[in-house]
């Protein structure tokens, strides 16, 4: 049967998770930004060592720290969703199991990100 689609159109969407190259690019971008963001996050965590409750709250409600932690959380939730997706695509080939794990992975990455962000914002706005 005649196929009127162009070769590009036929190839689109054929990745192991039926997606394109966006994830590939995002993984590189979140890695490069991640180097800066993880450095900042490690400094914040070190700063909190030995601090009592009020000190930690004061540290975590500094606007620079709030912005840094929100950005780091967003960055790494995207990064780890893509990373784990690659692992699932590598090892799980049964279609139903693969789709389910991909959904669980996207769900976990989103929930972790949102719960963390709510905590950061709550601390930020309650002093």
């Amino acid at each position: 049967m005649e196929d009127f689609r162009t070769p590009t159109a036929r190839a689109r969407g054929l990745g192991a998770a039926r997606g394109g190259t966006r994830d590939f690019w995002y993984q590189r971008v979140t890695s490069a930004l991640g180097v800066l963001l993880i450095t900042g996050a490690i400094i914040v965590v070190i700063d909190s060592i030995g601090a009592d409750y009020d000190d930690v709250r004061a540290l975590l409600s500094n606007p620079v720290v709030v912005a840094l932690l929100l950005l780091a959380l967003l960055n790494f939730c995207i990064h780890m969703r893509i990373g784990m997706q690659v692992i699932i695509e590598d090892y799980v080939h049964q279609p139903m199991a693969k789709v389910l794990l991909l959904i669980v992975n996207a769900g976990f990455s989103t929930v972790i990100g949102v719960v963390g962000a709510v905590a950061i914002i709550k601390i930020a706005f309650s002093g």
């Binding site: 409750y53 930690v56 709250r57 975590l60 932690l69 972790i112 719960v115 963390g116 709510v118 905590a119 950061i120 709550k122 601390i123």
Partner: peptide, 10 residues
């Protein structure tokens, strides 16, 4: 662990 820390402080 990281989010536990944040939630605990909150």
């Amino acid at each position: 662990v990281f989010v536990w820390w944040l939630v605990a402080v909150a």
